[in-house]
Design a protein around this nucleic acid. Structure first.
Lengths: 155, 155
DNA sequence: TATTGTTATACTCTATAACTATA
DNA sequence: TATAGTTATAGAGTATAACAATA
């Protein structure tokens, strides 16, 4: 494929902004003793009740890695494990009230931490940027049973 | 601060695209037995010779963490450590030819992996998106001695 | 005294392999 | 047999604390 400056510049910007966003998420997670992966899991659980295998597939992690991750978060009371009625082998993961509160708090922190950056753009530019990013983003993990209300998805 | 839909939507998009980009970088690093952090370090070293303390400050990692990271990469022949002439306490980190080649190869892989996404935009949209991302990105690590030629910075 | 870096230690994250239970 | 999940194990990533060398 022929080199393309517009693509190269865009990838540079995407990679650099990605590292910057990850830095913020890592720091805010750490302030609450959560790894980036755990923070992400909680974000996913906000509006879904996936099975262990759904999570490991979506996150690209081995199922044994998920077992440890979920076990540590469960020990802290941030989520619980339940068995699926349809398939007795399956384990569904559910966020607890404590997990939901912590997630909301971190979400506020994230918005605050990124405000200096997003504030460098005007409202129209922000909307334009959000619109341009949309086609680049893969669809999130399929929603499960209870989408009682419209939800904002960060994952 | 008052809630702002344009900011919320933008942050959602930035976080989601960041996770997607990190997924690509993690996978490509793993294909070459490199962690995300090591891949990032090599990217930084392409056009700079920072000291250990520069790296740990820029990456937000403890100096002891850097020692281990750099030691493992050095053992693999991807970089070397040298002492600074100005400050005998300081250790400067330099990429090797092997490290440079590997970095170039991964860079190609990254562009290829992201092509399906970036290709969903036209050339003008790509330029526009790159322009909008620019103000959001913090300045990279200060360049050191040998900027012999203009370089593209992903870090 | 302060700064730069390394080492020892401990815990988390991660994958591989072996296992149990269910489909 | 195949799939879902856990456990044991090992290596990498990370921070804290204690240390040596230089400023």
């Amino acid at each position: 494929m022929a080199p393309d400056d517009s693509t190269d510049d865009l990838i540079d910007g995407m990679v650099r902004s990605a590292f910057q966003v990850m830095g913020v998420l890592t720091r805010i997670g750490a302030e609450h003793d959560l790894s980036l992966t755990q923070l992400r899991v909680l974000g996913i659980l906000r509006d879904r009740q996936p099975r262990m295998s759904d999570l490991s597939a979506f996150l690209g992690l081995d199922k044994s890695t998920m077992s440890g991750l979920i076990a540590r978060a469960e020990r802290r009371g941030l989520l619980t494990r339940g068995t699926s009625p349809e398939d007795k082998r399956a384990v569904v993961v559910l966020i607890t009230d404590a997990g939901r509160e912590l997630t909301q708090r971190m979400d506020d922190d994230i918005r605050e931490a990124l405000a200096p950056a997003t504030g460098r753009l005007g409202p129209e530019q922000r909307e334009q940027l959000a619109r341009l990013l949309e086609p680049l983003i893969s669809p999130p993990l399929q929603a499960t049973p209870r989408p009682d209300r419209p939800v904002r998805r960060t994952h």
